[in-house]
Simulated assay, not measured.
Amino acid sequence: MNLTLFVVVLITAIALVAIALGIARLISPRSFNKQKGEAYECGIPTRGRSWMQFKVGYYLFAILFLMFDVEAVFLFPWAVIVQDVGVMGLVNVIFFIVILALGLAYAWKKGALEWK
Rank of each mutant, 00 (worst) to 15 (best):
V80Q: 07
D84M: 11
V70Q: 03
A72P: 06
G86F: 11
L90F: 05
W108G: 11
P77W: 06
A105H: 02
L90V: 04
V80H: 04
A112T: 04
W108R: 12
V73S: 11
A79E: 06
Q83I: 14
L102A: 14
K110P: 13
V91Q: 00
V80M: 12
V73P: 06
L104V: 13
W115D: 12
F96P: 00
A72Y: 09
I99L: 15
A101M: 05
A107N: 05
G111V: 01
A105I: 13
D84I: 11
L113Y: 03
Y106T: 12
D84S: 15
K110L: 01
F74L: 07
V98W: 00
I94H: 03
L102D: 13
I94Q: 03
Q83T: 12
K110G: 01
I97W: 02
L113P: 09
Y106G: 10
F76R: 09
F96E: 01
G89N: 07
A107D: 10
K109V: 13
A79P: 00
V80C: 04
A105K: 07
V98H: 01
F74M: 13
F76G: 05
K110N: 05
V93D: 01
A112D: 09
N92H: 12
L104W: 09
A105M: 05
V82N: 04
W108S: 13
K110A: 10
G111I: 00
A79W: 06
N92C: 08
F76Y: 11
L102G: 15
I97F: 03
V98G: 02
L90A: 07
F76T: 14
V70H: 09
A72N: 12
E114Y: 11
F96K: 03
N92F: 13
V85I: 13
D69V: 04
V85S: 09
I81P: 04
W78E: 03
L75K: 04
F95I: 06
V93H: 02
V85E: 05
A112H: 15
I81N: 06
V80S: 09
L90Q: 02
W115R: 15
V73T: 09
W108Q: 13
D84T: 14
V70D: 11
Y106A: 07
W108L: 11
V98P: 04
D69P: 01
I99M: 15
W78N: 07
A112M: 03
A112F: 10
A101L: 10
G111Y: 00
L90T: 07
A72I: 14
V87T: 15
V91P: 00
V98Q: 01
G89M: 02
